[in-house]
Amino acid sequence: MFRTMSLLRALIGTSRLVRHTPRLLAALPPDDDVLLDPPDGRLAPALVAAALDDPEPAAKLLATTRDAAEWEDRDRYTTRLSTFAYRRDGWLEHWLAVAPQDPDALLVKAQLAVRRAWESPARAERLRELGPLIEAAAEAAPNDPVPWRLALDHARGTHASHTVFESLWEQAVRRAPHHYGSHVAALKYLSAQCCAPRGDAPRTPCGSHRECFDFAEQAAEDALPGSLVQALPVRAAFTLLIAGPGPGRPVCGERIDAAADRALALSAEYPAGDLWPGEVRNLLVHVLVERGRWTEALAEFGRIGPHASTFPWSLVADDPLRGFLEARSRTVREVARRTPLRAVPPEPYGAGPGDADRGGRSGPGGHYA
């Protein structure tokens, strides 16, 4: 009898997959149309020019963000430009040769240097050598919070004390109290404290997942309407999920689900297919998949559309794009398998004709992973 029931359940599940999967897939962009980290309308021309060793569009773009205090855009573009320079830096060298004290060139240079040092086996040593470079970028643009976000990343890599962290955090929020990038950098510092083995990094009273959640939730409560800082708790949830179970790592299921609920509400404020909250949506959908919230994950894949992001998939898969597509395929299968044969499966929130990227939009933005 038990074997018969198992076979019947398997047959019903297979029938549901066959019936519902094609309809669900048809509502999502085809795999071949999904792009990893597509640039928005402002960044794309700068990247094209950089490929031709012309730094002028990048210089104008970053100068515009600095003059207009578009700190989220500035942070995002700095990170993307440094990522391009990581593989091809002739245009940046040319820019620095022509304008060695340009605050925007110095910022990209510092971001690139930190990335290269971070990948070195002698990470902490290499990073410590970069302190003057980050200070130069901060001094060149006194009102800019992005160098201070970079300083927070630097503090994490050098295992700086909590006292040092607090002084850098104060400088960052003094310039932009709601800067998403600085909040992410602070949470990453605190999370590193949580996950570091004893003796590998300084352990402070903040060094627990509970206090990481406390920091993220308080920041979300204080955030401006529509700010991506509201999604900080789901980032804390992701960190806890990838850390896995262990001493000092409680499951915190209710807290993780509450963080996902908050991020879902934020995502719903933006049009489907919008590049602006794209990284947050990718992060959120991973958490939803891990929590087995399949219908909500499917809706979020619909909102993401064809815009996958390197983060968080690079941390859970060797190939970020493949990791995204496999999670999406799994979600489709799970929703199909759970939908009764005669029922209509839920449709993803697909991008409509009016949805487009918000290149140039000032407001809450993203941050490198």
Rank of each mutant, 00 (worst) to 15 (best):
H154F: 15
A336H: 02
A317H: 14
H94T: 15
H178C: 05
A10Q: 07
T65R: 05
A176E: 06
S191R: 12
D75C: 14
W294D: 09
D153Y: 01
L190D: 01
D54L: 04
L8N: 03
D40Y: 07
P103E: 10
P312S: 04
T158D: 05
E129Y: 08
W95P: 06
S120C: 12
G246E: 13
L107R: 03
D222C: 09
V108W: 03
I12S: 05
W118P: 05
R281F: 00
Q230W: 03
G226L: 10
G253Y: 01
L341R: 03
P202R: 13
A155H: 05
V34N: 02
A46H: 03
R210T: 11
S167L: 12
R66F: 05
H367E: 13
E221D: 15
F213Y: 11
P225C: 13
A351L: 02
R303Q: 14
D33N: 08
N143I: 06
E334R: 15
A105R: 04
L240Y: 05
P312N: 01
A186R: 02
D33P: 03
G41K: 09
T14A: 15
L106V: 12
L25K: 11
S191N: 13
F311P: 00
L275Q: 01
N143K: 07
G352H: 07
L24M: 04
P225M: 11
R293I: 07
P245S: 15
I256H: 03
L264N: 06
W313D: 00
L232F: 04
D102P: 02
T83D: 14
G207E: 10
S15N: 09
P247T: 14
D261F: 02
S6H: 07
Q218L: 13
L224M: 12
D200T: 12
T239W: 07
A59K: 06
A192C: 10
S329M: 08
E254G: 15
E129R: 15
V34R: 00
E56G: 04
F238E: 06
M1V: 12
V184W: 00
L127M: 15
D104K: 01
V114H: 01
H209I: 12
E279V: 13
A141M: 07
F324C: 07
R198A: 14
L283D: 06
R330P: 03
L35Q: 15
R358P: 03
D32A: 15
D144C: 09
D54Y: 04
P55Y: 06
L315I: 08
A223R: 03
V229G: 04
R123L: 12
A268G: 10
A243Y: 01
A44T: 06
A216W: 04
A219R: 07
R281I: 06
G305P: 06
F84Y: 09
